[in-house]
Simulated scan of single mutants.
Amino acid sequence: MGETVKVSPMRSKKCRDCGMIKPSTEFWKNKSSSDGLAYYCKVCFGLRNSRAYRKKQANLSKEARPYRRHSDVPEGMKYCPQCTEIKSVDEFGRNRASRSGLTHYCRPCHAKVMAENRNRKHGSARNYLLKHRYGLTEDQVGQMIADQGGMCVICLRSAAEQVDHDHRTGLVRRVLCFKCNGGLGQFGDDPERLRLAAEYLELEGSHARSLVLELGRPVFAGRRYLQEREWWRRVRPASGSREQHLRRRYGIDDADAHWLLTMQSGHCAVCFEFPAEHIDHDHATGAVRGIACSGCNTGMGQFGDDPVSLRRAADYLLGELVREMPSNEGAIRLSFTVPDVDPRRAAKADWERHREADGRHRRTIWVVDDDHEGPTWLSQCLKKIQDSYALMVEELAR
């Protein structure tokens, strides 16, 4: 093996191009030369490379960039070849693949170049994202939306916009609206939690039955309760900001919230799985129903506190909502309502009627005998709760 040539920074050398004698630090290292230095100084070396680059660009009929020395960039600054400006390194993104650890272009130029590349290779940014995330093209998603009649298959009220997929398998399911897609995520894609939420909203779950046994009504408080406690609000001042919030928004105090939490054993009134955190109430009547966990409380809001959508979402996750049916033309079409309706031919004004009929159907098939006392006892219990709540609503209306 040859001996490594060590170059002293105090030495000097004459450049063959410019003829000037310069310090050795102004020359690149070159192991093949006798003194271990390049034949040309760094400035002349750059000019030689520049001439070669310009000749190549001219042969390709392309415009060459103006010559610029890299050493002209001050410390802490970086040159952007897109906008041809020298900027602070803080204006560049991170790129571990590059020697400097920064992107080649500044942030605005980088975003612009990436967008142009996506549009050139994939047609549009949306098409790129669909391919990257779901393996679908924009045309394929458009065909899926057309097969659904343009409607979200769960709520049947909003336009289908967002592709929904199984996060465990990565398989694409259908195209949903923004709220239904977000609601599934809040419930953790759990069909059982969705069914329990539907029963909870209809005051037919075990939490409503517990309130009936404790208070004689399926909800904790309503507007009449709030009106009766107006005098109490004036006489007894709130103990803190939390109690002020509870009184102002729900008409209850810390003692009421503590009673509810104790009655629920600290668990969510909907799923009984996660800790109870948020007071849940009916926005129409003002009735406090219970204390729910963050996921159930937010998820019910995403589905618009609608039991029909919740039950349809549960069947959707189980693969029992969307079915393939033969069309009159002999092809395959989709069906996601009972009675069966061709979504391609359904008028937008008729979806609410189809939705109500489908909701009645799914409500009858998902009655669960969770107390093992038989369907007769359960139906009688549910009827008593419904009658009690109907009387309360009538009193509030009067």
Rank of each mutant, 00 (worst) to 15 (best):
M1R: 11
E3K: 09
V5R: 13
M10K: 12
R11F: 05
D17V: 12
E26G: 02
N30D: 15
S33K: 14
L37M: 10
Y39E: 11
K42N: 05
F45R: 14
S50T: 05
Y53P: 02
H70S: 14
S71R: 13
C80Y: 09
K87G: 06
S88V: 00
E91A: 09
G93H: 13
A97R: 15
C109P: 12
N119L: 03
K121F: 07
Y128C: 05
Y134F: 15
G135M: 10
G142R: 07
G142P: 03
M151G: 00
V153W: 02
S158I: 00
A160M: 06
D166A: 09
D166G: 08
R173M: 03
L176Y: 02
G182Q: 10
S206N: 02
E214Y: 09
R217P: 00
R223P: 07
Y225H: 15
E230F: 03
R234C: 03
S239A: 15
G240Q: 04
Q244F: 01
Q244C: 04
Y250W: 11
D253T: 11
D254N: 09
A255H: 08
C271T: 09
T285K: 05
N297Q: 11
G299N: 06
G301D: 07
L310D: 02
R323N: 11
N328Y: 02
E329S: 14
E329R: 13
F336I: 08
P339S: 07
D340N: 02
P343G: 07
R353P: 00
W366Q: 12
D371F: 08
G374I: 07
E395W: 09
R398Q: 14
